[in-house]
Design a protein around this nucleic acid. Structure first.
Lengths: 143, 143
DNA sequence: CATGAATAGTTCAATAAGTGAACTATTATA
DNA sequence: TATAATAGTTCACTTATTGAACTATTCATG
């Protein structure tokens, strides 16, 4: 198996899995929130008091795109904005109570769904798989 | 490592890799085409004379979304439409000469780019990785 | 074999997500 | 203190998607 073929198969499988997870979130967990919004919300929960710029950098998108997303999450009352008292330019993002409940519920539902597809993998295979995924992810990280 | 954590780490790494490939396609290979359009074009090349419905099913999106994509690829002269002579409802999609050249160029550039990130993986690890990816992808396939 | 159902694809209006340039407000620097 | 840089927003535009309504064609059965 040459590299060309490997990259190709990698891309096909990757795309397929990515799309399928989106579909699960949409259809199985009809959650009034998009996958992108969920990713952003989840990131904020894990990095409480982060800023728009952090998100823009993490996701490799422009700050104006983040503003739009933040607005959508704000309108749904899932996050709050809080200006820094010292540096008044900075706006910290904080997940609300409602937001935390929402993430927990959605994550649980997603786990239960994905669990099904992992049934025939051994513990070792899963560990290996995640290890490889994370190594690739780190290699691709922005410097 | 429990399942919750594994799924979580899997999702984070997966999202990150997916976004990073998009960025590579956009920045390194400034290719006048989006990642989505490239995926569709590539699918048509691999399944010559496929239909809009095939694509809609493969990518899990509605037919009207496919029409819009097909129009964009058509406007760029990368594909052609050909009605079936027997069943006049069906429209076959065919990649043009220009489209084939375009895919070959872009794929080569993408391979060269991704190759960098795979340097420290052994042949065995890559095989294992792709194998696991494809198994997961198959498990998630629509029945 | 005629008509009603199914199928393939398109159009349309709406929403989400992104870009990049221009802007506001604030802080850092020299 | 004037000028740079930084953080975030707004705006106009493009892409991708949805779902309903539509056209055209083929299938199916009564």
């Amino acid at each position: 198996m040459n590299l060309k073929e490997m990259v190709d198969r990698h891309q096909t499988a990757m795309n397929s899995i990515y799309r399928r997870v989106n579909i699960i979130l949409k259809e199985k967990i009809h959650s009034d929130i998009t996958t992108d919004q969920f990713s952003t919300l989840n990131y904020i929960r894990k990095h409480d008091r982060c800023t728009s710029s952090d998100i823009a950098h993490e996701f490799g998108i422009g700050k104006s795109a983040v503003t739009a997303q933040i607005n959508r999450l704000f309108d749904k009352e899932l996050i709050e904005r809080k200006r820094d008292d010292k540096d008044r330019r900075v706006v910290y993002l904080i997940v609300t109570e409602k937001g935390i409940e929402f993430v927990n519920f959605t994550e649980k539902a997603l786990h239960e769904e994905l669990e099904k597809y992992l049934k025939d993998f051994s513990q070792d295979e899963i560990s290996m798989f995640i290890n490889l995924l994370e190594r690739l992810s780190n290699n691709m990280e922005d410097k």
